[in-house]
Design a binder for these strands. Structure first.
Ligand code: MN
Ligand code: MN
Ligand code: ZN
Ligand code: ZN
Lengths: 148, 148
DNA sequence: GTATTATTGAAAAGAGTTTTCATTATCAAT
DNA sequence: ATTGATAATGAAAACTCTTTTCAATAATAC
């Protein structure tokens, strides 16, 4: 996803943000990560590239990127403070329970189910969350999954 | 759900827990609520019935009830610290975005989708989260939804 | 280059949750 | 019913995560 780094910086600039080293580092880390990250993880990785990066800046940047729709929060068993590059399409997440690798997929067809539920419950459905968990190919091969 | 109050207390007892006023109050509140509650909400409601109930006891009881599978955590836009009576069947949640009313539904058929995803991604899918949001009949009628 | 002002990181504050601990209350065994 | 063992309680303290404050700095427009 590294090719989007400049795109994100430009989108930030278009929103009135200045292009700072701290933001570049945070953006790059998010775009390079195959899995959703906690603010503290972004911070730790960021410090390796920018000696005195502040955790506050990570929070502020994540907030701004979420606001621009470039990252999304990911809900998870162990908490809901994970951030992942967002998808533009209508897609949902497939997450490896072992390594956290996140992949978007499309093609869910819930319209029949939703019509059914509207009929039986009287709810007007406006939104749906769907998230799949499993074991990714790499973790299946490595056999480490036994410990999961 | 009030009829389950004694059942829950017995299940707690079977797990080695003593039957205390604090637990009764917390159990009752959870069983009476049509929506998922935050620990602080359980505490506030509990204090009205048991003058010096402690917030710590609410946390401890929620933890125990979750461990026994009697309540489940509900993930939500504004946080993931909501607790709701759990369902025994394979069911998912339908939540009113306006009043929070939670209802379980069954009948989701995702097997075709999951087979498809397994084929294209190589993931071995082990779990799925599905949650629907909408407006419940009562909120639709009251017209308050306009403000949502 | 200079002025403007957004951004920064440290420190402090705040919110939510967990741990500690002395006291109390439940329950099983008399 | 009385007793004893010990689970449970609530207040306070500790802790973690997140947000706010603020003076110094750096990015951008001119
Ligand atoms: Mn969908
Ligand atoms: Mn299902
Ligand atoms: Zn994996
Ligand atoms: Zn409603």
């Amino acid at each position: 996803m590294a090719q989007y780094s400049e795109t994100w910086m430009k989108l930030l600039a278009a929103d009135g943000c200045r292009q700072t080293p701290a933001r570049r580092v945070i953006v790059d880390i998010l775009l390079e990560s195959p899995r959703a990250l906690e603010p503290m993880e972004v911070f730790s990785a960021g410090r390796e590239r920018l000696a005195n990066l502040g955790l506050v800046t990570v929070y502020r940047t994540l907030e701004k990127l979420e606001e621009l729709g470039l990252v999304q929060r990911v809900h998870h068993h162990g908490g809901c403070n994970l951030y992942l590059r967002a998808t533009n399409a209508h897609e949902h997440l497939l997450i490896c329970s072992h390594c956290g690798k996140a992949e978007y997929f499309s093609g869910d067809n819930l319209s029949a189910l939703m019509a059914d539920i509207t009929r039986t419950t009287g709810f007007a459905i406006t939104e749906h969350w769907l998230q799949l968990f499993g074991t990714c190919p790499a973790c299946t091969r490595s056999g480490e999954v036994i410990h999961a």
